[in-house]
Write a protein that binds this DNA or RNA. Sequence first.
RNA 1: GGAGGCAUAGUCUAAUGGUAGGACGGCAGAUUGACAUUCUGCAAGCCGGAGUUCGAUUCUCCGUGCCUCCACCA
Length: 791
Amino acid sequence: MYDKSIEEKWMRKWEKEKAYSFNETDKTKPVYVIDTPPPYTNGVLHMGHVSDYSFIDFIARYKRMKGFNVLYPQGWDTMGFHTEITVEKKYGKNLDEKEFLEKCEALTTDNLVKMREQMKLLGFSVDFSREYITMSREYKAKVQLSLLLMYEKGLLYIGDHAVYWCPYCKTAIAREQIEDKEEKTKLNYVRFDMEGGSAEQLTIATTRPELLHACVAVAVNPTDERYAKYIGKQVSIPLFGRKVKIIGDEDVDVSFGTGAEMVCTFGDKKDLVIYHRHKLDEIKAIDEGGHLLNAGKYTGLSIQDARSAIISDLEKEGRITKKEEILHTIKIHEDCKQPIELLHSTEWFSKTTDFVNEIKEQANKIKWIPEITKRYLMDWANYIDWDWVISRDRRFDTPLPFWICKSCGYIVGADKKSLPVNPRVDAPPVDKCPKCGGELAGEKRTCDVWIDSSITPLVIAGWPDNKELFSRAFPSDIRINATEIIRSWDFYTIYRVWALTGNIPWKNIFVHGLILGPDGRKMSKSIGNVVSPEELIKTYSADSVRMWAALSGTMQGDKALIFNDVKFAHSFINKLFNSLEFARPALSGYVPSSSDMANTDIFDKYMLSRLNSLIKQVSSAYEDLRFYDAANAIINFYWHVFCDYYLENIKYVVYGDDKARKKGVQYTLHAVVDAVLRMLAPIIPFSTAELYQSFAGKDVHAQQFPVADEHAIDKDIEEKGEYLNNIISMIRKEKTKNKLALNFELTKIIINVPEKYYTLLAENKHKLELIAKVKEIEVKVGKEEGVSIAQ
RNA sequence: GGAGGCAUAGUCUAAUGGUAGGACGGCAGAUUGACAUUCUGCAAGCCGGAGUUCGAUUCUCCGUGCCUCCACCA
């Protein structure tokens, strides 16, 4: 019976012995480096993390057993918006900066400690002595160094650029922080007068009448017969009276609204494209807090108020010819769920658009598993519209290490020797602007959190100081993460590492789907379908949860968490423990020796052949990171081939007096248990550690992974063994049919077999009698294959 | 709107141009010298249509449904 308390015991033992420390001085073993995605510390580990990190740990443990010196550190992504919001919600928005940052750090540390404990509970063989924390001074210094180097390479710049802007949070946001939201809105048909007071009118349809003041053109599709003739003419904007041109653009959808649309400089992304394409004028429409600019009497109104005021005024003038309710999708900020605007803003940028080809080239050098996932990155890269906005107007983040000249705009980077710096309070490295002698002002903004987390493959390899380790540990061998972060984390990591080193960040990347709630929907607190790892560990065990992770399919798609799968894993582990209760006494005093192979019979040879086939199969599954296949193959073999048949088939030997036969059986038993425990060790480390200790007196995790003995694999023996088991199954079936207990001793049965199996059956008749508890078996050659009771 | 993926018992999943394998759940039975967290057995399935073929669940096309990414959303 499986006792969960062993998990605590082994966990503390591994912790105390620092069993999984990377041995930096050992240069004999090849190094295997795992770049784990550091979890964000605004919360604790959920089942998605558990699945992700379990996969990583399977690899780490497997590679150690294959003789690698495994570098498996764990990082913590600590800073940024989410933590700030949590702290603001908890303590209000009125904390002073020092107090606010202290609360952020305290919250982070608290979560970090909880997560670290969760990882230990789950048996993750992380080298915690090589932990990195993005809010630490040391890590911030590295982030700032990376920014200085990128600046020197001309990859960073301050620009006046259209950015997605959240008026609610008053911050620029990146494309991946945007969500779509469907909502009902009114499509307003607004009548414009044509130039020269002609009687001709043009009606446009708009969902955003509040941007009327920023209208810089009216666009129609040049193929649209209704309007093509108007291209080049002018119309007058209602309420404002300003005249704008009618332009032709093929992106205008003739079937939407009236087929004529107004173009505002910052209405949406398509407006922006047309604005650039036709070199239209710029009118700043909205300020950073979401109030109208340059809008005459409407200036200063919020977007909502302006919308009602303008609609009402348009109606008074009889300009609105129709209002239509439509369902459309607006872009909202994923954090605050408020609508996003496009604004021109002065921000820091990292040049990505110019390097799309380089990034794709790097991505092509990485092995993507499964290969299809590379496509997600490529699709993303192909749609880069503008550079990566890396500045954030927030507080709990790495400060941008720059000072800017107030008079000429010259940028002064921090002194690399004095990192980390905080230009909001620290003095610049030089007194005056080196270019014009002007006064320098510290950059007040911080950087995007992805800036922090996109250099992990460098940091874990000792960058920039430990050059010796770096030469061995970079690039990382593998990165593992979910599909959802390919376009952010993976993309930025590939870009940043390329920019800083010209190299790829990892040789391999394994991408998997999400773990959904039991109802098949994404786990979410508001739906209430979140399952906590603790709950499952408490009900079952850490090993069951890990085994569940291995059994959760190929993980190419998303996967619902099914409790039965954890239960099943738990049952198997229990079976493993119970079977050892049989095997251990049966092997008592046995010293394995290859000479005992001489005493193996067909049942043993069948087992050994199957075992070695299994080792081959499982090894290749592990190599290809197909943990589902590995776990599944071991479970089926152990439970249904080894326990259900072999153990039953040899009981008469174990409890009998034939010493020679017993040696053959013990040899086989030992070989199977030994190899199976070692093969399961990466997946269920606690159970296998406990069992291997009692079985072999050794640490299973210090053993080599089993290697198949090709000579033991004999397809002819496998077929014969299969046939004998099939006969046993038929005898069991006969007993069941007659409602007899399986250990009920039958007097006589007749077995009809095809001629080719007659010799096999005749030779093993006596063994079958003992295994199946029958006094006498008569074997006959017969057309009707089968077993019948002769009473 | 574009691109891609997927469709197998109640649920999850595998393989296959010729009888579709397994798990969970269900049902029936057994209590066996490690194990009731067990053992034995049973029932239950290829989304719809057309084509290619002696034969299609598998290949092709169409439809339908689901998923992902991208675009549009004045």
